[in-house]
């Protein structure tokens, strides 16, 4: 269990900014589910729960998700269920139980860039941007590829477009971490294929996505694309599964996701 020496609860983002500048090693508290597993000694902690970041806001063009929105909020949100074939609610609904999802926050889940994340593949399949206090807005894919810098994630912004999305995952026990997961989206003619829990972090299979995008439906079959994705991405072994098995399952999940999008 972690310990906290001093805590700050700012009410505005400008106060947050001042605090972050004053304490370079300040630790932002998310849902604390994973922080709790560590015995970190935190000198200065920052709580964002009074900064109006616990709302999901729907605009004409976007859905904006505050960093303190819980995974349970996402699961229940009408807009997120209505858009993108409900891929985001579907992805989070596999994570443990309602009590846990009512604690875990989207900001921490994205900021920590967990390899086993169920959320990242789904978010990567959408037109998703992250908003950072200091770094400003950037596409999620750029955020993920950069090293973790000391910053505060304030919002996730998703463009409302009429894309079809499929989220697939393979687990042994229902409440376990995924052995592998995948998300596939189709926006107009553009396809995106993402595979996560490899066990490394979710990544876009760029070549396979291009292959699918450049081919008219019918000329490339989903199995070939899935095979391409499994050759393009790297897979590793851990206690849950071997690299070879993950690579083989990548073909299965990606194929199923493509077929679900086409269905």
């Amino acid at each position: 269990m972690f310990t906290i020496e001093s805590l700050h609860q700012p009410q505005t983002l400008s106060e947050v900014k001042q605090l972050v500048e004053k304490y370079p090693d300040i630790t932002v508290l998310g849902g604390c589910g994973f922080l709790k597993l560590s015995s970190r000694k935190i000198p200065v902690a920052l709580d964002l729960s009074r900064c109006e970041l616990e709302k999901i806001h729907e605009t004409e063009q976007h859905i904006e998700i505050g960093a303190m929105v819980t995974l349970r909020d996402i699961e229940k949100n009408p807009a997120l269920n209505q858009w993108f074939d409900g891929a985001l609610p579907k992805a989070v609904s596999h994570i443990l139980g309602v009590q846990f999802r009512s604690c875990a926050t989207i900001g921490a889940s994205v900021y920590a860039k967990y390899g086993f994340s169920d959320i990242l593949p789904a978010l990567l399949a959408l037109d998703t941007q992250v908003e950072l206090l200091r770094g400003g807005r950037m596409p999620l894919v750029d955020f993920l590829s950069k090293p973790i810098t000391r910053d505060v994630l304030t919002r996730i912004v998703i463009t409302k477009d009429k894309r079809r999305v499929s989220y697939q995952n393979l687990r042994n026990a229902g409440a376990d971490f995924p052995l592998l997961n995948a998300a596939v989206s189709k926006h107009d003619a553009e396809w995106k294929i993402i595979v996560g829990a490899r066990p490394a972090r979710a990544e876009i299979a760029v070549q396979a996505s291009k292959l699918l995008t450049s081919s008219a439906y019918g000329t490339v079959d989903s199995g070939t694309v899935a095979m391409a994705a499994s050759m393009e991405l790297a897979f590793g072994s851990n206690n849950k599964a071997s690299a070879e098995y993950r690579q083989a399952m990548c073909q299965v999940l990606v194929k199923r996701a493509i077929e679900e999008v086409l269905a």
Partner: peptide, 23 residues
Amino acid sequence: DTSCCGLCTVWIDGKPVLSCTML
């Protein structure tokens, strides 16, 4: 101790949460 058994469930504003994980 790892936020996954549900034994400590209480309600916050009527919704179930893990009291072991809620500051």
